[in-house]
Computed example of a mutant assay.
Amino acid sequence: MRLLHTSDWHIGRSLHGTDLLAEQEQVLAGLADVVTAEGVDVVLVAGDVYDRAVPSADATAVLSRVAARLRRAGAAVVLTPGNHDSARRLGTFSELLAVGGLHVRAETQKLDEPVLLADEHGEVAIYGLPFLEPEVARFELGLPAARSHEAVLAEAMDRVRADLFLRPGARSVVLAHAFVGGGLPSESERDISVGGVDLVPAAVFDGVDYVALGHLHRPQTLTPRLRYSGSPLAYSFGEAGQQKQAWLIDLDASGLADVRPVELPTPRPLSVLRGELEDLLADPAHDPVTDHFVSARLTDPSRPTDPMRRLQARFPHCVHLEWTGSGVVPDARSYQERLRGRSDLDVVGEFVGHVRRVPATPAERELLGRALASAARAEAQL
């Protein structure tokens, strides 16, 4: 049996306020081409199907079209909710959807009830573990004293292994959404741990043939049978240049036979540009990234005027701007020391210099003086 491990679709997510639905649908619908080309039997989605618990109508429509395309390509689909999803909403009509080959495993109480599929070697049991929020799952699993992700996942895996014991010869796959020890996070995941309390040891998942992990957005291998597929798109500029992928998993008669990466397309790459504004606007070396999503880190000694509008004239998809220039040495004096013996105009002028890193010009000081005088007159009339 051949499976395609994906996760963290985050349908409905934006990049610095820019909608990504078109790019998401392009990549996710393209998974159907992988299914056809590679003869994939099952597509796995290990959590964070949507980016929010209450997805928009447009986001749900994208999932519907993508799932239908995967089914038409010939693959069954097994998906589980992650920490961004609402398990109850995602699990709506799950029994009906299963009849059509879309298996949504969203109920904590049924996490040890696998999706059972078969090939020429026999049965394959696929267990979908929904994201187990410790404060909720500990009561659902009968563990009122447990307060960590490790504790509730350990109980979940004990139940999975108990069910597998009753299925001699069955090969096994588990989907889980967790921060497992040894994994490297990116900038775009929502933290699910507090002080390391919810870091889960890899040994929790012992006893199954393959564990399809979700939550961390960069693809990585913790052990040959324990892997993160990463997200299908980059969701932060910290992931710029990262090649996104899915894992293609082969199971033979004895269990895990092979795992290899399948590269996913990048509809619009992310690029980070650093330099002074005029250089970014004029340098032909930046021509190749004109159509990329761009984050501009400006190093001008003073804050430029209207930089985003000017950048977007050359880079239409510039979505993030940060000024990192430094033109003024920080003043180590206390606030009281800086104000002592100074006029209101001097104080306001220094504020302008602090914000822009260059002193106010004479014309600006004149405007500031007129504004202060007007404010003083208004206060006197009260």
Rank of each mutant, 00 (worst) to 15 (best):
T6K: 03
D8N: 00
L15N: 03
H16W: 06
D19R: 00
A22K: 01
V34Y: 04
T36P: 05
D41A: 15
L44T: 05
A57P: 15
A59D: 01
A61I: 05
V66K: 00
V66L: 02
A67E: 05
A67S: 11
R72P: 02
R72Y: 03
A75W: 01
A75I: 03
V77W: 03
D85Y: 02
S86I: 10
F93H: 14
F93Q: 15
S94I: 09
E95V: 15
L97Q: 13
L97N: 10
A98K: 10
G101M: 04
V115T: 12
D119M: 11
E120G: 07
G122N: 09
E123P: 07
G128I: 01
E135T: 10
A137Q: 00
E140F: 00
G142Q: 01
L143M: 07
A145F: 08
A146S: 06
A146K: 01
A151G: 00
R161N: 02
A162I: 05
R167P: 08
R167C: 07
R171D: 14
S172R: 06
V173Y: 02
A176H: 00
H177T: 00
G181F: 07
G183V: 02
S186Q: 08
S186W: 05
E187W: 09
R190N: 12
G195F: 14
G196R: 08
V197P: 02
D198C: 04
D198V: 03
F205P: 00
F205A: 02
V208F: 07
V208P: 06
Y210H: 06
L213Y: 02
H217W: 09
R218P: 08
T223V: 08
A234Q: 09
E239W: 09
G241D: 12
G241W: 15
Q242G: 08
D250N: 08
D250L: 13
G255S: 15
G255Q: 13
L256Q: 10
A257M: 07
L264Q: 02
P267M: 05
E276H: 10
E276D: 12
L281Y: 11
T290E: 14
F293S: 06
T299L: 14
T299M: 12
D300T: 13
P304D: 04
D306M: 11
D306R: 12
M308A: 14
L311A: 07
F315R: 11
P316L: 07
V319Y: 03
H320I: 05
W323E: 03
S326K: 14
S326H: 09
V328R: 15
V328C: 10
R333D: 07
Q336R: 15
L345C: 04
F351G: 04
H354S: 11
H354I: 14
L367P: 03
A371G: 11
A373L: 13
A373T: 11
A373Q: 13
S374G: 14
A376P: 07
A378N: 14
Q381C: 13
Q381G: 15
